[in-house]
Write a protein that binds this DNA or RNA. Structure first.
Length: 283
DNA sequence: GTCCAGGCGGAAG
DNA sequence: CTTCCGCATGGA
């Protein structure tokens, strides 16, 4: 077992996992176990550090997964001093959020499932998907199931997807698996420009502007993406005094303001808005 | 019972 | 081009 230790100044494990970017993690001991494709890591904060424990040969994978090579201080300072009160508060609340480098495939399936859905249900459905079709794995002697490979999902039919609670989204996932089985390669999209990538993702049945932006940002790290969902729409109206109605125009508006920091700022705002609504206050 | 959740496809205007 | 509607499901 390998132990990766870093500063906790820009790495709060709980905030990073619970901010809405990822759906496969569970509370564990002093922190959480998090899963990406077929891998698992145990992570927690202690004193002034963040610690990641993983299998020896997964070290470089998780260094990249948790974006540990990136310095968040310039981006954070820019958010704090941007001049928007809600953005300042959001950045302070989410200072410990790191944007994970997730798998495009897992991100695409996950956010396809996320549409017009809520996070607890999304998590539950994805867990059922893994339990049914994911490879059995062990971490520290404890069993978990990998995210299913495309090959494994060939055996899943629409009724199965409905049985895990996907509802009308079942057809989307089913079609996506077929597309991927016929040779469509998501990894080849990573060199496209943000606009070209989004355009390409929008061709996928069940992927609209919001899901495309999430996949673009969380799966491909295109930081000039700004997903607009119901929460961000609320921030836009209530905190930015916005009047645009179309979510695509709202997204373009924010990318125009925040440029290469769009995705990060969006995540701060999303986490903040959702936190105060859920808890009635911050932290 | 209604409303909502990290919206999208398809039809209609 | 834009707006409107139906959609599955479970929790509040």
């Amino acid at each position: 077992m390998k132990k990766i230790v870093t500063s906790s100044e820009f790495f709060n494990v709980k905030d990073t996992l619970e901010c809405g970017q990822v759906f496969r993690f569970v509370p564990y001991k002093q922190g959480f176990k998090v899963f990406c494709l077929d891998r698992c890591a145990y992570c927690y904060n202690v004193n002034d550090t963040a610690v990641i424990e993983c299998n020896d040969n997964d070290e470089s994978f998780f260094v990249n997964y948790f974006d540990l090579e990136k310095d968040y201080s310039d981006m954070y300072r820019s958010a704090i001093s941007y001049g928007s009160e809600v953005l300042t508060l959001s950045a302070k609340l989410g200072k410990g959020i790191r944007i994970l480098n997730q798998s495009p495939y897992e991100t695409l399936v996950s956010f396809m499932v996320s549409q017009n859905n809520n996070i607890p249900r999304i998590k539950a459905s994805i867990e059922k998907l893994c339990n049914a079709f994911g490879e059995e794995k062990f971490f520290n002697g404890e069993r978990y199931y990998a995210f299913p490979t495309v090959q494994a999902l060939k055996k899943a039919d629409v009724d199965f997807y409905k049985s895990i609670g996907l509802g009308y989204r079942a057809e989307y996932v089913y079609a996506l698996v077929n597309k991927l089985c016929s040779g469509y390669n998501l990894d080849e999209l990573k060199n496209l420009s943000t606009d070209a990538l989004k355009k390409e993702l929008l061709k996928i049945y069940g992927v609209g502007p919001k899901v495309a932006d999430c996949v673009s940002f969380f799966g491909y790290k295109k930081t000039d993406s700004f997903p607009v969902d119901t929460w961000i729409e609320k921030v836009y109206r209530e905190n930015f005094g916005g009047t645009l109605l179309s979510r695509e125009k709202i997204a373009n508006y924010f990318v125009g303001l925040f440029k290469e920091y769009s995705g990060y700022f969006q995540q701060y705002l999303f986490y903040y808005k959702r936190s105060i609504e859920k808890n009635g206050q911050i932290k």
